[in-house]
């Protein structure tokens, strides 16, 4: 008898107060978790069978005051074929989450990539250095303040289309 994501979250929610579970329009379970509890939650979920880390990445929402950055985890439960998306909101002043490299070896480069592009620090990471960009780069290029094109250009402005 296979369990649902809700049942799995229910089981661990005694120990973790911050889990906010919701289902989006596409049937995916999203859970917001604080950065203090994320490691514990992932550890417990892994024990419960979510032992495949599908993806780990970050994103930047400069408008969200106090929660500018987000780390997004996708976990997969093979036996029950369940997927869950975990999110940690981070303030730009405290960009640090615990590394999950000791739970999933594959998280190593994914965390390095997230660090490289967003500057999010992963504590206890064995080798948190840039991976795709050059080592002496002094900024994190996927942040929204870095526009893709030269900002002084006027011919590409979108004002004619109301956006």
């Amino acid at each position: 008898m296979s369990k649902t994501v809700e049942a799995y979250i229910e089981e661990i929610s005694k120990d973790f107060s911050s889990i906010e579970l919701s289902v989006d329009n596409y049937g995916m379970h999203n859970a917001f978790i604080t950065k203090d509890e994320i490691y514990g939650v992932i550890e417990k979920l892994k024990e419960a069978g979510f032992n495949f880390l599908t993806d780990l990445t970050g994103s930047h929402y400069p408008e969200n005051e106090g929660q500018e950055f987000q780390v997004v985890y996708h976990l997969h439960h093979f036996y029950d074929n369940l997927r869950i998306r975990l999110k940690v909101n981070l303030s730009k002043d405290h960009l640090e989450v615990p590394s999950i490299t000791d739970l999933y070896a594959g998280a190593n480069w994914m965390e390095r990539e997230t660090f490289d592009f967003y500057g999010i620090q992963f504590s206890n990471h064995p080798n948190l250095s840039r991976i795709l960009n050059v080592d002496d780069m002094d900024y994190h290029p996927m942040r929204k303040e870095f526009a893709l094109e030269d900002e002084t250009r006027e011919d590409k402005e979108d004002k004619y289309f109301g956006r």
Binding site: T54, D55, T57, S59, H60, H74, A105, G106, N108, W109, M110, E113
Partner: peptide, 14 residues
Amino acid sequence: RLHFRRPCFIYYQA
């Protein structure tokens, strides 16, 4: 935001 989960990137670590 668009992120590609690229299998090569992930398994080349091993």
